[in-house]
Design a protein around this nucleic acid. Structure first.
Lengths: 207, 207, 207, 207
DNA sequence: AATGAATGAGAATTCATTCAT
DNA sequence: AATGAATGAATTCTCATTCAT
């Protein structure tokens, strides 16, 4: 199904083939992202192959097990979020950067449910040394940077740390993804969290 | 396979047959709660049977499909939370009732991951008329009552409504269940949310 | 579910019970006749119990296996047809008796598909010595008598014998039961068979 | 499990993969024909796989449901009979063609019980638009042609039509398949039917 | 490197039959 | 004698993974 034009191999055979393979790899990853995004991890690998328009064996050539494929999808998602966070860090003032990234994640969550599913399961103190974990930790580190900078300029209360902020980010995203919220309710939810992140003194009487 | 332990009969022969069935039903539900709690809905019914120490057919006699079993488990969870919420309403002052129930849910979440999974997926505007939905809506209604009472006494800001509060409840629970948080981080997370729920004016400059 | 009034046992305990049992036996047989008639032998025994309004265990008490139940149903059907055939023999002139019985079976077949199913499978040279076989052979014998008498008065050609006549009877019934035939076509089918049974010399040129 | 006998490749390597699949498909169909022929539709798909010497999943790859497999078997049977009928039409004089085809079906029936089972259930006024129905109707149409031609040359009485003739064909076949008939009885049965089909005036006095 | 066919290990579900009351 | 619960074996179908081309 993939172009296997023999003529192309004449000049730089191996390279041509690899380009082909790389194309397929990406097609498969994108298909997998969509399929697992919709059907959860219990969606079938065959479905991925179909959407990617490659044979099932090709999927397994690129990713030796279904788990490997899932991990690659996750790692890619983490990587992207990490890059977005890094872009935020580079481009904007600390407060805007932090809150915008937070809001961005929450707003996008319903469209990419599975992303936040992934975020959840690969959050904090991992131990495995695989690509997913590393990508997840890169993202976490970026969020840490965003947080620190916002705290340094006084836009986020100083008596809070990354673990709970990350947890809130994850939780709010998942909530937005699963619970049906209209635009205004979602904004109000964010307002609550943002207010809570801004307030200086922790609540008094309520317990 | 079922423990036909004669010792069990000691409490009174007459209650036997029917009681046995009821016992099994509960054993199955509890096994299912645990199995689906850990493995998600994709865990196998056979596993449930094994844990409940009954034959597979017994599971299907009590719950004609896997879906029915899942729904029974969910409904039971919702019902319990609903009862806890109602107890809160009855027993405590509005502010304590609301915040304690919120905290209670979040603290228990890690131990009962699957509960919050369930909360997530069966949250808001349902349409089906099954037992799960009704149980879910009863819980939601209880939370609504808790919220209103806390607002009436001024312990929760008045410019917020059930949808986002419920979403936050769900989100915080899930976050606590999945992301590894130590006790202090968890408390700080709650502090942020509670502060956000307490503040009267929605934040100004940050956006 | 069946009346288990202990008071009734006082006068002639055993007898009373048996009457109960006999009633149930018949209810079960009738239910089985209907259930297997519609769903074929692959219909479930539980369905029979439900229709008979007895517990499943009661069915198995009366008929130790599903096969036994099936056989009892069959035997009963054969027995009834046998009785009808015998009644024909007793009451009518030989020609009418034979052709009417033939037609009667064919006309009734669509309503009682399963009867003819049974007829088919238990036709000729049986060897087992069970009740079904004996009942089947009684029916066959009756048809034999009907045939001989019709032949003796010259209404059926003399160069034909029971096996093929019985086969035709069975075949025509099954055809009428399964193939959708309107009334006229059914009559024409019978006319063909009856003409064939009447003609004296077997066809000449056709081959 | 599949006979991956290398010897089979001798005819030409290139045709391999696809050809293997086609071979398997046919093997499965033939196995299914036999298995369902003997055990009826309630025979198990696993049995078919075993007889075809392929894995169970291979059966389901070729025929996605058991029903699909059954239909394929039926369609194939109808198609073959249709082709035989067409061959008759092409090759022989009308009377011989008609009566030979009729006899042929009846003689073969005992060897292929299930064929006549199929004939029975998929005979006349169908409504579904699947392959089985179409194949069945092609056969029926062929028999219609055979009949008309035989009528046109006066070998079959003119006051009869396809429905009852088809029903007789089916009925005689089923009878021959199930009721144990020796050769002579079978011939006499055919003689009766053929005589009935030949006679011009429908019977007088008998009723 | 890519493909589609093949495969066995489950998974849900049904059923005849047995047990305890 | 009657009942309903319990059971394991069987059945249809799915899926990740391997093979041969």
């Amino acid at each position: 199904m993939a172009t296997r034009d023999p003529g192309r191999q004449e000049t730089g055979g191996a390279r041509a083939q690899r380009a082909d393979a790389r194309t397929n790899r990406i097609r498969i990853l994108e298909a997998a992202d969509e399929v697992f995004g919709k059907g959860g991890e219990s969606a079938s690998t065959e479905e991925v192959a179909r959407l990617a328009a490659v044979g099932i064996a090709t999927v397994f050539r690129h990713f030796p097990t279904k788990t490997a494929l899932l991990e690659a999808v996750l790692a890619r998602r983490f990587q992207r979020l990490h890059e977005e966070a890094e872009a935020s860090i580079a481009s904007a003032d600390p407060a805007t950067a932090f809150f915008d990234f937070f809001r961005h994640l929450v707003l996008d969550a319903p469209a990419k449910i599975a992303i936040t599913e992934a975020l959840l399961d690969a959050g904090g103190g991992e131990n495995e040394d695989d690509e997913v974990t590393r990508a997840s930790q890169r993202l976490r580190a970026s969020v840490g940077t965003l947080l620190q900078r916002a705290q340094r300029v006084g836009s986020v209360r100083s008596d809070t740390a990354l673990p709970e902020v990350y947890a809130l980010l994850v939780g709010a995203s998942r909530a937005a993804a699963h619970v049906r919220l209209d635009t205004q309710a979602r904004d109000r939810m964010l307002a609550i969290v943002f207010d809570g992140l801004t307030v200086q003194r922790s609540g008094t009487a309520r317990r």
